[in-house]
Design a protein around this nucleic acid. Sequence first.
DNA 1: GGGTCATGGG
DNA 2: CCCATGACCC
Lengths: 265, 265
Amino acid sequence: MDIASWNVNSIRSRQQHILDWLGTNTVDVLCLQETKVVDEDFPRQPFEAAGYHCHISGQKSYNGVAIFSREPLQDVKIGFAPLLGSEVTGDLDEQKRVISGVYMGVRIVNLYVPNGSAPDSEKYSYKLRWLKTLKTYLHNLSKSDTPEFLVCGDFNIAPEDRDIHDPKGRENHIMATPVERQALKDVLAIADLQDAFRKFTEETGHYSWWDYRTRGFSRNRGWRIDHHYLTPKLYAQAQRCWIDQEPRGWEKPSDHAPVVVTIKD
Amino acid sequence: MDIASWNVNSIRSRQQHILDWLGTNTVDVLCLQETKVVDEDFPRQPFEAAGYHCHISGQKSYNGVAIFSREPLQDVKIGFAPLLGSEVTGDLDEQKRVISGVYMGVRIVNLYVPNGSAPDSEKYSYKLRWLKTLKTYLHNLSKSDTPEFLVCGDFNIAPEDRDIHDPKGRENHIMATPVERQALKDVLAIADLQDAFRKFTEETGHYSWWDYRTRGFSRNRGWRIDHHYLTPKLYAQAQRCWIDQEPRGWEKPSDHAPVVVTIKD
DNA sequence: GGGTCATGGG
DNA sequence: CCCATGACCC
């Protein structure tokens, strides 16, 4: 079973890229982030015509997540609330950043973690609060009737220095501050989650996001911030995890590349 | 000598269309309207590489005119002021709508006549005031040392009912009101100018502009508002005048088609 | 509907 | 740099 995660930076701007990519990468499940469109306007038709079921949760302009799957997902859950209740989630479900569903007995959790803007900003505390809530969400999930799950998406955190092209000054750089790294570790620890990519690849130089502004892609000055995390049994079954840089080189690309994990079934 | 006029609706958005069109239509002179760019940012290079000299007068966002020519133009005049003086032109040269220059002894006057918005608007009176000034401008030109000239561009006026796909309600429709039609007639009369297109084609159904909004092009619901007007001697020398609908059918086209006149030399 | 700009976000 | 939006213009 192949599962991919791709921050597409607008589904409407990237529709053809996604179709082209699916044409040569017939994954079973594709998790998308930053679809940036309300559900009524989501272009389901072309993806359904390509053989995928679309499970979506979007909003205007910002955020928005979707899962495409060859077979329909079971028990789709949108936001944190289905597992936590709206008293706990508060305002956190206003931004559409969480969608999950069960595919072949495995719950796929697709996330768009807040970027956090800058370490001294309001958005940074929102990111930390969001991650704390995610931790509880995954804890509940591990106690549920689908204790084997995969958590993927755009985490907006480079877990280690080898996940950044140049770790200089990283302590104060959003996506690499010690506090958010620790917050991510706490999230993962709650369910014994492990990074599928690092099962196969130890070295630095592998990234999933390159800033448009600094034209980082041509020089491979990037960040590995898109991940697949697996519960122990699935981790053991993981056969490959790789980043497909190709679509990042296409015309008018997303700033992220798709990350694919293969799990033995 | 082939002279073309084309409202390109942004030179930067239409650069490739123009180069492609020039590739199979090697006109001597190409008059452009709605370039929508200040002179410093005008993309001269690709057009110079294609063998044209660029004579430009633009502004940010709106309006803007240019003349491309195989040989450099002589005596380029920008705006009304060079012939009328700034006391007469007042504010009318703030909008970049007039450029002219001499090619092979013929003065080419390239115009982007104000659209006028609606007959009850401030912009409509501006249009009429502008046309009155144009009349004086052409009068002065007819008394100058280049009394043979061509006046082309986007006139934003359909001179007759046969120049509109559906003349119903035209009396109150901008670009067809009797007052602006008469204003155009007055402009042309001052220098005995005649419509080159109507030398060769009497019937209706020939248009140079089709509204994006109503998808008028596919149904040929258009307006003939882009013209070439000639002084008597040139009119006698005119051998062909035609509208090239082809580029209007390309991807992301201008809403106008180029109009080409051939003058025997 | 398709240009422009400005603003906000990353 | 490349998304999004809203305002203006044709």
